[in-house]
Amino acid sequence: MTMRSMSGVLAFAALMALGGCSSTMVEPEHYSGFLPDYQRLKEEESASGAKVARWVDPSLNLSRYNSVYIEPSQFYPRPQPTDQISQNTLKDIAQYYDTALKRELGKVIRVVNSPAADSLVIRPAITAVSSSTEGLKPYEVIPIALVVAATTTAVGARDQEVQIATEAMFLDGGNSKLLAEVVRKGTGTALENKETALTVQNIKPVVDGWAQDLRLAYERLKPRQ
């Protein structure tokens, strides 16, 4: 494999490295169990400077894939909606994740409705993150974890920080061989207080950043015509 190809492979595996200005690493104790093998994940720095946990098959050659199939994103584990995070919001978040990935990847590779032998298959999940602030108990493990931020408002109420995490695997469309894995998280737009309902707008900047970074990383390996 040439140096150019190797750098492209590593850039592609970096993936989802924008969105959110706090930690982008998911602690191993908060891995969801969605990926088949966490042991080979290593902390790396992505092309845009964010820390991610990832693994890439050293023999990966993206030039053999002429299309990409993006499986519908799923929640793992399955969440229980709350007053603050409704079932409709969870549905909207999953649909927006799909939309963002297809929008960005569609700019650089053909997105197909079913996998073929020449397809790269992306299997994304929105996964559970459990976080806590000193003196406070963690919220229940749900795909969107809300933690009380350190900053207080003028009326004394604390902002609610919104964190969303993803785990994704990349497969060969012909033989289902696992090609890469990645785990990361991001911080969305804070909620005013614990009574404020979450909407998809709170997490759009994070998801947009993940999708844009995936496209940019893919472009680095795209063969020049």
Score class of each variant (00 low, 15 high):
R220W: 07
L18I: 06
N66A: 09
I70T: 03
E45R: 14
K51R: 13
V68F: 02
S48H: 14
V206L: 08
V200A: 13
S114M: 11
A116D: 13
Y218W: 13
Y76T: 03
A168H: 01
V56Q: 04
S46P: 08
E140L: 12
S63W: 09
A125M: 05
T189Y: 04
L136A: 12
V183S: 06
E44D: 10
A100G: 06
P124N: 07
L62A: 05
T196F: 04
T24H: 11
R215K: 14
Q84S: 13
V26T: 05
V129P: 00
A157F: 14
T187E: 13
G33K: 07
S119I: 00
K51D: 06
A165F: 02
Y31M: 06
P143G: 10
T127P: 01
E195A: 14
P79K: 04
R110N: 10
T187L: 09
N61T: 06
A100N: 02
T99A: 14
I85E: 00
Y69A: 07
Q80L: 13
P72M: 08
R64I: 11
L214K: 00
D92K: 11
N66H: 15
P79W: 02
S130M: 12
S46C: 11
T187S: 15
I142M: 13
P58Y: 07
V68L: 07
L221E: 04
I85H: 01
